[in-house]
Design a protein around this nucleic acid. Structure first.
Length: 687
DNA sequence: CATATACTTGTTTTT
DNA sequence: CAAGTATATG
């Protein structure tokens, strides 16, 4: 077997030091594109080579995508010598599920728990909220379900007292503190009683499990090494999870970049990263500043952006890839012209040899790409979109899964009401009655045989109850068969419910064909909730594409990825600083970091574009305050950008033809193995 | 009691 | 523009 230090041959000195660091707590501050993931992956490989069993290493990442990518890279660098298969790599949430399946009973989580996604949580909370509304009888103005859930979720994740959360973020509702507190207590209690778990509960339960006097200690001892990626985006609750897992910090590694913290709405706090050295004694702090991704001119612009930030340490990224393309700032007449401009440039890059899949268009909110998508469809360019509404969140998919969810957990009233309402002739009232029947009985769903539906629905009702009791029974049926049985029943209902039924039906066929991937019904339901197919590609993957598609992504979903060509679109007040988000100073600063994250995704070409302000919905210039110039871009920065006005088409042509050749990509080697790893799916690399 | 229609409201980001 | 409320009809 090779010497374990050979593994680290390609790392720079700081990276190597991080990889070889012993078991004392390690905090790695790593700027965008500095080889953060590379270092982390090498550290894991090095530890395994040093004799630590992979099954005793936990690698916590921010998204499932990041976890998969890391495992893939780990596999690549460890070759055949090291067996890495036992490693626990995943998000906090996914890891929690994994632990709960094994140890959940210890803290009262039933093996057949079902999960609620955000809209299910809202529904459950809404039922309690409506009762409360009757009680207060108009004396108080209570929040809507979505707002209420956000409050509660923030409270849980931040671990602050509810009073503080209300005062700080929802002052309008400070008066209802008492009522809301009661509401949330009842909400938590009810979920526990019926074996329902939501996103926040996964963290809460993971913490509680790890604090369990016996089981918790056992788990803590089992994991000798714990590594956390994107630490700047963890919240207090996640910090508590880590504290419970590694009380002394022994074996703990955290990696992050305070300049890229963009999840404050999930109660993420840079305090976690700043306080790490105090929280865990003997912490070693290492910093990575050499960027292996971008060219120096591109980094100059990003650095300039961050130098205007109001707070935070300034790191200056540098690269030895001097020269190359200078970023362009492009002013467009309106959104549709912006779309045309982007498509035109994408095509030009493709002609010059950059495949579509190596180009990405990034934006603040999912709907910002609508105009562009129309244009892409017109040009028949294939694309995948990350972020925005997920496949598993669409109504028809949720309907289908609700049948299985109810069968899995007959106390999951949200699932029950959802499917009951699908049946013609059954409304909220009747559905409520049916659900109440379930609460008192122990015979399960067969009690519904006693329900007498309106005569028009009686036949349908019979087949419905038959279906459900079949699903509920332990009679061995494959998942696929179960789904097909549901589809038999649901298919016709779907048809007269939605006008685009054929399309939706195809989605469901897709879902059914995915069934074999899952080991059990419970697993399928939970996995689809914590790891919903995040792009259109995941769903359509087997429809063979002629060409790997262009990437469209929200900035949040683009975190940690890179592309040779990056477009940041709609970077103008009203869209990139989102008015709603930029109300507070902290919010405003986060919007800036968002732009920073977006710009630092680019390796070779970067375009930032914005439409001119226009008089828009409900009185107001969409980005008037800045006279058409995006707020964050200061005059010196504008000079660094090669500024263009796309409304003068001749100007575009002129500049484009002069800069049409490929940029000199700096020194011959890119100093890291990140590039060029053209295996099937690695159109993008991580930092 | 279920459902259809007509009108108001508030617009992000993700596990 | 979707998701809420309010009112009318079956």
């Amino acid at each position: 077997m090779q010497d374990k230090d050979d593994l680290l041959a390609k790392l720079n000195p700081v990276q190597r030091e991080a990889a070889r660091h012993g078991e004392n707590p390690l905090l790695l501050i790593a700027g965008a594109g500095t080889g953060k993931t590379t270092t982390l992956v090498h550290r894991v490989a090095y530890q395994i080579a040093s004799g630590i069993s992979p099954s005793r290493i936990m690698l916590l990442t921010f998204t499932r995508r990041a976890a998969q990518q890391m495992v893939e890279r780990l596999r690549r660098i460890s070759g055949d010598d090291l067996d890495i298969s036992g490693i626990w790599a995943g998000t906090f949430h996914a890891t929690s599920v994994r632990l709960l399946r094994i140890f959940g009973e210890a803290i009262g989580v039933p093996a057949r728990f079902t999960m609620h996604d955000r809209s299910d949580s809202e529904d459950l909370l809404d039922s309690l909220l409506n009762k409360l509304k009757k009680d207060v009888d108009g004396e108080l103005t209570l929040p809507r379900k979505g707002t209420a859930l956000s409050m509660h979720s923030f409270q849980v994740n931040s671990q602050l007292p509810l009073e503080e959360v209300l005062d700080q973020f929802y002052p309008d509702y400070s008066e209802c503190l008492h009522e809301l507190q009661g509401l949330f207590d009842r909400y938590q209690k009810q979920k526990r009683q019926v074996g329902i778990v939501d996103y926040d509960d996964l963290l809460l339960l993971m913490r509680d499990l790890l604090r369990h006097p016996e089981v918790g200690v056992r788990i803590g001892q089992r994991f000798e090494r714990v590594l956390v990626d994107e630490y700047q985006d963890t919240n207090s609750l996640q910090a508590q999870v880590l504290m419970a897992l590694c009380p002394t910090g022994k074996g703990l590694t955290a990696v992050g970049d305070d300049a890229q913290s963009i999840y404050s709405f999930r109660a993420a706090t840079v305090r976690n990263i700043l306080d790490f050295p105090e929280q865990f004694l003997n912490t070693t702090l290492l910093k990575l500043e050499q960027n292996y991704r971008g060219t120096q001119p591109l980094l100059d612009v990003s650095n300039a952006l961050m130098s205007t930030a109001k707070e935070g340490f300034t790191k200056s990224l540098w690269s030895d890839r001097t020269g190359g393309f200078r970023a362009q700032l492009i002013s467009c007449v309106d959104e549709s012209q912006q779309a045309e401009m982007i498509v035109e440039r994408i095509l030009r890059h493709r002609k010059e040899g950059i495949p579509l899949a190596s180009q990405a268009v990034l934006f603040r909110a999912a709907y910002h790409s609508l105009a562009l998508e129309t244009e892409l469809n017109r040009e028949k360019l294939p694309y995948v979109k990350f972020g925005g509404l997920k496949f598993a969140e669409s109504a028809h998919v949720k309907d289908l899964l609700a049948f299985l969810r109810l069968a899995e957990n007959t106390k999951d009233t949200v699932a029950a009401i959802r499917i009951l309402l699908l049946i013609p002739g059954i409304g909220p009232k009747k559905a409520g009655q049916c659900v109440d029947m379930l609460q008192v009985t122990s015979t399960g769903l067969s009690i519904w045989n006693q329900v007498k539906p309106p005569s028009s629905a009686s036949l349908l009702w019979k087949s419905f109850v038959h279906l459900m009791t079949e699903l509920e029974s332990d009679r061995p049926k494959s998942l696929k068969q179960q789904l097909e049985a549901v589809m038999n029943f649901y298919g016709p209902l779907l048809e007269d419910r939605y006008d685009n039924a054929p399309l939706r039906k195809r989605d469901l066929e897709q879902l059914i064909s995915m069934a074999d991937r899952f080991e059990s019904r419970q697993q399928m339901l939970v996995d689809l909730t914590i790891d919903p197919p995040s792009s259109t590609e995941d769903v359509e993957a087997d429809r063979k594409r002629k060409e790997p598609p262009l990437v469209l992504s929200t900035i949040h979903s683009a975190k940690g990825l890179e592309w040779p060509v990056v477009f940041v679109m709609s970077a103008a007040a009203g869209m990139l600083p989102m008015p709603k988000a930029a109300e507070t100073l902290e919010g405003y600063e986060e919007e800036r970091r968002l732009l920073y994250v977006a710009m630092t995704r680019a390796a070779d070409w970067l375009y930032v574009s914005y439409p001119q302000p226009r008089y828009d919905f409900r009185g107001g210039w969409s980005n008037a305050t800045v006279g058409g110039m995006t707020e964050y871009i200061t005059p010196p920065m504008a000079k660094m950008f090669q500024r263009q006005h796309a409304d003068c088409l001749s100007e575009i042509e002129r500049i484009d033809s002069s800069s049409a050749s490929l940029p000199q990509a700096g020194p011959s080697k890119r100093a890291s193995p990140m590039r060029k790893s053209s295996s099937k799916k690695s159109k993008t690399n991580s930092e």
